[in-house]
Computed example of a mutant assay.
Amino acid sequence: MTPSKQPERRLIASNKKARHEYTVLRTYEAGIVLVGTEVKSLREGRASLVDAFAHERDGEIMLYGLHIAEYTYGTWTNHAPRRTRKLLLHRSEIKRILETVREGGLTMVPLSMYFDNGYAKVELAVARGKRTYDKRQTMAERDANREIARELGRHLKGHPRRP
């Protein structure tokens, strides 16, 4: 019996700041329309999601601000690093996302970009912006959980509790 083939998923870039700045309500996986030199540059891992966001244009969802560095060995056919790129989603998903976003106070933020079986994908989140006190509360919870895990580890290893 042959072992089942696991889907190959290779991370290109992630937007760590997005999880700090936004409360993620729902995530979607979307394909992305790219040109040849963009794919080659992504295979080298040269992308940044820091300033990227998604927005609706003509009934389709477009990704703005995604930086894919020019391909080093490219010629005059190289791509523009920050061009607007179309996201590939089913019509029903687009409709559902846009209805949710139009409720107010919500936005579309890319969380990560990866290759899935050779296809470039973007993990798109419908999110609500966090207020400053929400960010402080999240950081406090994370610190408390880290301290609990540390104490539990000490206890399991038989080390005495620190004063």
Rank of each mutant, 00 (worst) to 15 (best):
N117R: 13
P160G: 12
R162C: 04
K121Q: 09
T75F: 09
S4H: 09
I94P: 02
E147I: 01
E123I: 03
T75M: 05
A125R: 01
Y71R: 02
I68L: 02
E29V: 06
L34A: 00
A30R: 03
I12M: 06
E151P: 10
G65W: 08
K157S: 15
A52Q: 07
P81D: 08
F115C: 00
E44L: 13
I148F: 14
Q6G: 13
K121T: 01
H67G: 07
R131D: 06
E99W: 08
A47E: 04
A140Y: 05
S41M: 12
W76A: 14
G36H: 10
K17V: 14
I68T: 02
L152C: 13
Y28H: 08
V109W: 03
S92A: 12
I94V: 15
R136T: 11
V126T: 02
V109Q: 03
R161D: 04
M1Q: 13
E147P: 04
R19C: 08
Y133A: 14
H155M: 15
P3T: 14
E29I: 07
E93C: 11
A149D: 15
Y71D: 05
A125Y: 04
V33K: 04
E8I: 10
D143P: 11
K16L: 00
E44G: 12
A140D: 11
L156V: 14
K130S: 05
H67I: 05
F115T: 01
P160H: 11
L87F: 03
V35M: 00
G59P: 03
A120H: 06
R82P: 10
T72L: 09
V24M: 00
I97A: 01
N15C: 06
R128P: 04
K135M: 14
K17N: 15
A127R: 06
A140I: 09
M108N: 07
T37A: 01
H20E: 15
A52R: 01
G158M: 08
D134C: 08
R150T: 14
P163M: 12
R43W: 04
I97F: 01
V33R: 08
R102D: 03
H159K: 13
A120P: 06
I61E: 03
E99H: 10
V35N: 04
R26Y: 08
R46Y: 08
S14Y: 02
M62K: 08
T84G: 06
M108Y: 05
V101M: 01
I32W: 05
D58Q: 12
P3Y: 11
K157Q: 15
G65T: 08
K40Q: 11
Y28N: 00
G36T: 11
A13N: 05
R83C: 13
